[in-house]
Amino acid sequence: MSAARPGPAASAALRRLRSAGGNGGSQIQGTPGIPRRSRRRKSVAIAYEPGQGEGAESRRPRWEPPNWREQLERIREMRRSRDAPVDDMGVQKCYDSSAPPQVRRYQVLLALMLSSQTKDQVTSAAMLRLRQRGLTVDTVLQMDDETLGQTIYPVGFWRNKVKYIKQTTAILKQKYGGDIPSTVEELVQLPGVGPKMAHLAMHIAWDSVAGIAVDTHVHRISNRLKWVKKETKNPEETRVALEDWLPRELWREINWLLVGFGQQTCLPVNPRCSQCLNQDICPAAKRV
Rank of each mutant, 00 (worst) to 15 (best):
H217P: 07
S208D: 15
M202L: 09
N223V: 09
W206Y: 08
Q275A: 14
C266M: 02
K226H: 14
E185V: 02
T265I: 14
K230G: 13
P268D: 10
G211P: 05
T183D: 01
A210V: 01
F261V: 00
L277T: 01
I212L: 11
L246G: 03
N234Q: 11
D215W: 06
A241F: 09
R239Q: 14
C266G: 05
K196H: 13
Q264N: 15
E249H: 04
L242T: 00
E237Q: 15
K226A: 07
L257D: 01
M202Y: 08
Q279T: 09
Q275L: 14
P235R: 07
L257R: 12
H199Y: 12
W245P: 05
R224D: 00
Q263K: 08
S208G: 14
T238C: 10
V188I: 15
P191N: 13
V269H: 11
N223L: 06
E236Q: 13
D215K: 02
E253M: 04
E243F: 03
R239C: 05
I212N: 00
F261K: 02
K230P: 08
R239E: 06
H217F: 09
L257K: 10
N234Y: 00
M202E: 04
W245V: 00
S222N: 07
R220Y: 02
L250D: 04
M202G: 00
V193H: 09
W227N: 09
S222K: 04
G260R: 01
H219D: 01
D244W: 04
A205G: 13
D215R: 11
R239L: 11
P195H: 15
V209C: 09
L190T: 02
L187D: 04
A205S: 12
S182L: 05
H199P: 12
P195V: 13
L190D: 12
M197V: 03
C276E: 02
K229W: 10
V218E: 04
L267D: 11
C276V: 13
A213V: 09
A241Q: 07
K196Q: 03
R252S: 08
E236I: 13
V228I: 10
L277V: 08
E253K: 02
S222W: 10
V259C: 04
L225A: 12
Q279I: 01
L257Y: 07
V193G: 09
C266E: 04
A241W: 08
A213S: 15
A210M: 04
T216G: 03
C276Y: 01
